[in-house]
């Protein structure tokens, strides 16, 4: 069971959302809560069934090796070591997600076009392109997107001086 804890991530997340949902709607009229309550009860039962099934399974090393996030040897060591190894293996994906969150912040403050430019300048190197190439391709792509949004007159946020 200990080595299959990652199988419980999705059930745990869904159950967490379901609990938060229930906290907001409890005590409301019957028509408001009837269907959500039925779904939450069913969801909780299914989560329990998944947990029960996983707890009955023996640790499956072969299956662990097949999962994308588990390179050979990744399951050895303590939990912090495993986490560090996982972060190292997925640094590019983590980098992309961080850049996307940064894009969201830049989008609101600097507008679509500047956010695109900054995102592309950083995302290309994160994907494995050299910095000089990233500046060139990033600028070209951002200009192309600017042209497209102008052409179809898409209402995107911009900074006052653009």
């Amino acid at each position: 069971m200990g080595r299959r804890w990652h199988e419980l991530i999705v059930p745990a997340l869904t159950l967490g959302v379901a609990m938060a949902y229930w906290l907001q709607v409890r005590g409301q009229a019957r028509t408001v809560v009837l269907v959500p309550l039925g779904v939450i009860v069913l969801l909780a039962a299914l989560c329990l069934a998944v947990v029960w099934r996983e707890s009955r399974k023996a640790p499956d090393r072969a299956a662990d090796r097949r999962t994308p996030q588990a390179a050979p040897g990744a399951r050895s060591g303590s939990l912090p070591e495993q986490a560090a190894a996982w972060v190292k293996r997925h640094r590019r994906e983590i980098g992309l997600v961080a850049l996307c969150l940064g894009y969201y912040a830049a989008f609101q403050r600097l507008g679509f076009h500047i956010a695109n430019l900054l995102f592309l300048w950083l995302a290309f190197p994160n994907s494995g392109l050299r910095w000089t190439q990233a500046i060139v391709y990033g600028t070209l792509t951002a200009v192309a997107l600017y042209a497209v949004t102008e052409l179809v007159q898409l209402n995107v946020p911009t900074v006052p001086w653009l």
Partner: peptide
């Protein structure tokens, strides 16, 4: 190469 594809597709997804 995906190093070109991923950032461009990401921006299209945002849009």
């Amino acid at each position: 190469p995906t190093r070109f594809l991923v950032p461009i597709v990401a921006v299209l997804l945002f849009l």
